[in-house]
Simulated assay, not measured.
Amino acid sequence: MNPRPHGRYADYQDPYEPAHAARPPNSSPGIPTQRSAVPPHHGDGGPYEYGPAPRRGGKVKRILISVLVILLVVAAGTYFWADSKLRKEVDLSKVIDRPAEGSGTNYLIVGSDSRKGMSAAQRKSLHTGGSAEAGQRTDSMMILHVGAAGPTLISLPRDSNVTIPRFRGSESGKTRPAMGANKLNAAYAFDGPQLLVRTVEYNTGLHIDHYAEIGFTGFANMVDAMGGVEMNLDKGFKDKWSGADFKAGKQTLDGAQALAFVRTRHAFATSDLERTKNQQKFLSTLANQAAAPGTVLNPFELYPVMGAGLDTLVVDKDMNPYLLGKMFFAMKDVNSGEGKSMNMPVSGSVGGNLQWDRPKVKQLVDQLKNDEPVTVTSER
């Protein structure tokens, strides 16, 4: 190895000496320099490299994935819990001579006067009368059509004059002869949900895809679980039969008051038609509040409301929580003005029963079957 030059040749660099052996600038000749512990940088051109920077994005990603997994598990658990509570007691496959399916989905929504499970004190406070074993009737019936043209909610007055056609008995399985002209709610009283579906389909020509029924107790409990339903009434009314006693204006109805509101008929001149309007208004408002983010995203609100409603909800065997949720959100849309609500068109009465306007009913059903915007009105 050649010795380093001294004196005037101290700055001389031997061309054959390796480049890495050159002295660092500003170093003194003959004094060894301290080699840095940091290795040379081989990255983006900076003077030193200290290893890879911490990956904060990876930690955030893991947290988000964990939250997503938890939400999926909770959602799946809620779905199966709700599905297990549904009373899937109505077998629509046993309904005979059914019309062809059309576009969209048709729900038959029924409010029955079932007093099952109610104590004498409850029957008195809710003004339901009768006994726990009293035969069931339908206090309200509605067809909810959900399709591309938006939802349409159609009330079927219980005093509608309809033909009860031949049908298959829900218990016996035997075919029964037609009963001729009757009130619509008589179909349910004779043989329950399956005959009601059969009668609605026969008199409208509209295929019913799903059935949902709630009794007095479930209805009142669901309203109470929500903390009441806020209504804005155009006018006040009283009815000693239902227990209704309302003033005009905005107010929150509890379960007993809500039941009185939807059952009242004696306070109105056109009893059944006015009552169906109130039922539509209340149910769509209830659905609007039940489907609000404050309820859906709050488990302390959601589970009590769902539990109160599902415990007494009777549905068809093909119903599931997804379809039920779809039904509720469609009713919410009706309330918010994105859908249409109406009574079945009526042209007059026969023996005290309401006679449907057949030409209008046919036009209405054709529009629903083809998923077209409904232009038919129910004004007499």
Rank of each mutant, 00 (worst) to 15 (best):
I96E: 14
L108T: 12
P193G: 13
D191T: 08
N185L: 03
R87H: 13
K174W: 02
K88H: 07
L92R: 12
R166I: 01
A181Q: 07
G147T: 10
L144P: 09
D113P: 15
S114Q: 07
T128H: 07
S170L: 06
L86K: 06
T204Y: 02
S140C: 03
Q136Y: 03
T138P: 14
E133F: 08
Y107H: 06
S103D: 06
G169A: 13
A148E: 12
D97Q: 13
S125C: 09
P177M: 04
V90K: 12
R123W: 01
S170V: 05
K94C: 08
Y107G: 08
A149M: 05
I208D: 06
S172I: 06
S160W: 13
T204W: 00
K94S: 15
P99K: 12
R166Q: 03
A134S: 15
A212C: 01
T163M: 09
D113R: 11
V95H: 03
T199L: 00
D191E: 04
K94M: 14
T204F: 00
M179P: 12
K94G: 11
V95D: 11
S125E: 15
R168F: 02
V146R: 07
D91G: 07
V162E: 11
A189R: 02
L184M: 09
H127Y: 13
L195E: 08
P177W: 01
L92Y: 13
A186F: 08
A132D: 12
L86I: 03
L156G: 10
M179N: 09
R168E: 14
H210S: 04
I208E: 03
G130M: 10
L156R: 04
S114V: 10
G150Q: 08
K94V: 09
T152D: 14
M142H: 09
T152H: 09
Y211V: 09
L86F: 09
L153D: 06
G104K: 12
D159L: 10
V146W: 02
D139Q: 07
I164R: 03
A134V: 05
M118D: 01
Q136S: 06
R176I: 09
H145G: 12
G129Q: 14
V95M: 09
L206P: 00
D97I: 14
N182M: 02
K183L: 00
P99N: 10
H207G: 01
E101K: 15
H210G: 08
K124T: 13
E201I: 10
E171M: 05
V200Y: 07
L92N: 13
G180Y: 10
K174G: 11
G130S: 14
S131R: 06
V200H: 07
G173T: 13
T204R: 06
G111E: 05
R176P: 00
V162P: 13
L195K: 03
V200K: 05
A121L: 07
A132G: 11
